[in-house]
Amino acid sequence: MARFWFCVAGAGCFLALLVLHSRIRDSPVLREFVFQVSWRTENVLYRLDVGWPKHSEYFTGVTFCVAVDSLNGLVYIAQRGENIQKVLVFTEDGYFLRAWNYTVDTPHGMFATRTLHEQSIWITDVGSGSYGHTIKKYSSFGDLVQVLGTPGKKGSGLNPLQFDNPAELYVEDTGDIYIVDGDGGLNNRLIKLSQDFMVLWVHGENGTGPAKFNIPHSVTVDSAGRVWVADRGNRRIQVFDKDTGEWLGAWNNCFTEEGPSSVRRNIETLVV
């Protein structure tokens, strides 16, 4: 019965996450146009806000991913395209604040973090240009703070910090980082890094068995200490212990035609 309800709720959840691709539970912000979605989860109604953003002319590229800093009321949107600002910053009410940086080729995943000392935006870059195959950390004003990986160079699987199309990451309040690396590239890995970027554990190679992946596409961590990975090519979700990296199991009966593209923190409301 739990698996049945997970499948039902998950179908709506994953469709929504394609639009929001961020911490939906913390903010009701929806991406502009495209989908008219309405569903109910835990007595909370989500629906399309056609008045957000206030000025859609700032979208000069293809909108791809979103991150929300709910404490400061900021929404970061990454877009793809040539000769455009890759990151747009809005208020939660939809008012444009600023745009920044040309140091991203092709954004794929974003994550907003906030500590007592800093506010940061992380972006995974799957581009093939001079900035691609990296994970970058920015200040809230767009200053480049940290680069993981070698810009413009694909990884081979031998070096955990040499990425090949890194799809997404999740950053805990402790600063620990979980990365899924391999959106169609040679690498098919789940990596955990400490806050000072030391490798704590690594799982993965291309395959269908436990702890193997075929296009690991999204990652999140729930309040019970479990790491959830959308294993898109294998049409399943795999689950790991966040401390040890131990494989805990997989959901593999919900996806028959297409694998999951995204899994986010509100997964815990469905399965805990």
Rank of each mutant, 00 (worst) to 15 (best):
residue 4 F to C: 11
residue 9 A to N: 11
residue 14 F to K: 05
residue 16 A to M: 09
residue 19 V to D: 13
residue 20 L to H: 14
residue 21 H to Q: 09
residue 21 H to A: 05
residue 23 R to V: 00
residue 29 V to N: 02
residue 33 F to L: 15
residue 34 V to F: 10
residue 34 V to M: 06
residue 35 F to Y: 10
residue 39 W to G: 14
residue 40 R to I: 12
residue 42 E to K: 14
residue 46 Y to V: 15
residue 46 Y to E: 13
residue 48 L to H: 14
residue 49 D to C: 07
residue 49 D to W: 11
residue 56 S to H: 10
residue 57 E to A: 10
residue 61 G to Y: 09
residue 65 C to E: 04
residue 73 G to A: 05
residue 74 L to I: 06
residue 76 Y to K: 03
residue 78 A to Y: 01
residue 79 Q to H: 00
residue 81 G to A: 00
residue 83 N to F: 13
residue 84 I to H: 08
residue 85 Q to M: 12
residue 86 K to A: 03
residue 86 K to P: 07
residue 86 K to L: 04
residue 88 L to Q: 04
residue 89 V to P: 07
residue 90 F to R: 09
residue 92 E to T: 09
residue 92 E to F: 01
residue 93 D to S: 15
residue 95 Y to I: 12
residue 101 N to L: 08
residue 106 T to H: 14
residue 108 H to G: 09
residue 109 G to H: 00
residue 112 A to F: 05
residue 113 T to R: 00
residue 114 R to F: 06
residue 114 R to Y: 00
residue 115 T to L: 01
residue 116 L to K: 11
residue 117 H to K: 13
residue 118 E to R: 12
residue 125 D to I: 05
residue 128 S to R: 09
residue 130 S to C: 11
residue 130 S to L: 09
residue 131 Y to N: 07
residue 131 Y to C: 01
residue 132 G to H: 04
residue 136 K to P: 02
residue 143 D to N: 12
residue 144 L to A: 01
residue 145 V to Y: 08
residue 145 V to A: 04
residue 145 V to T: 09
residue 147 V to W: 08
residue 148 L to Y: 02
residue 149 G to I: 01
residue 151 P to C: 00
residue 152 G to N: 07
residue 154 K to C: 12
residue 157 G to N: 00
residue 157 G to F: 05
residue 158 L to F: 11
residue 160 P to G: 03
residue 160 P to C: 01
residue 162 Q to H: 14
residue 164 D to C: 08
residue 166 P to S: 00
residue 169 L to A: 05
residue 169 L to D: 02
residue 170 Y to M: 00
residue 177 I to S: 02
residue 178 Y to F: 15
residue 178 Y to E: 04
residue 179 I to E: 07
residue 185 G to I: 05
residue 186 L to F: 15
residue 189 R to E: 12
residue 190 L to M: 05
residue 190 L to T: 02
residue 191 I to P: 06
residue 191 I to V: 11
residue 192 K to W: 10
residue 192 K to H: 09
residue 193 L to S: 03
residue 194 S to T: 10
residue 195 Q to R: 15
residue 197 F to V: 10
residue 198 M to W: 11
residue 200 L to C: 11
residue 201 W to D: 08
residue 202 V to Q: 14
residue 204 G to E: 02
residue 205 E to V: 07
residue 208 T to F: 02
residue 209 G to Y: 02
residue 212 K to D: 06
residue 215 I to Y: 09
residue 215 I to G: 05
residue 218 S to C: 08
residue 222 D to G: 00
residue 224 A to Y: 14
residue 224 A to I: 11
residue 225 G to A: 06
residue 228 W to G: 00
residue 229 V to C: 10
residue 229 V to M: 07
residue 230 A to P: 01
residue 231 D to L: 01
residue 231 D to M: 03
residue 232 R to F: 02
residue 233 G to N: 06
residue 234 N to Q: 01
residue 237 I to R: 07
residue 239 V to P: 03
residue 240 F to Q: 03
residue 240 F to S: 04
residue 242 K to N: 06
residue 242 K to H: 10
residue 243 D to K: 14
residue 245 G to V: 05
residue 251 W to S: 10
residue 257 E to I: 14
residue 258 E to N: 13
residue 260 P to S: 03
residue 263 V to A: 00
residue 264 R to W: 10
residue 265 R to Q: 14
residue 266 N to W: 15
residue 266 N to Y: 15
residue 269 T to E: 15
residue 270 L to K: 08
residue 272 V to M: 12
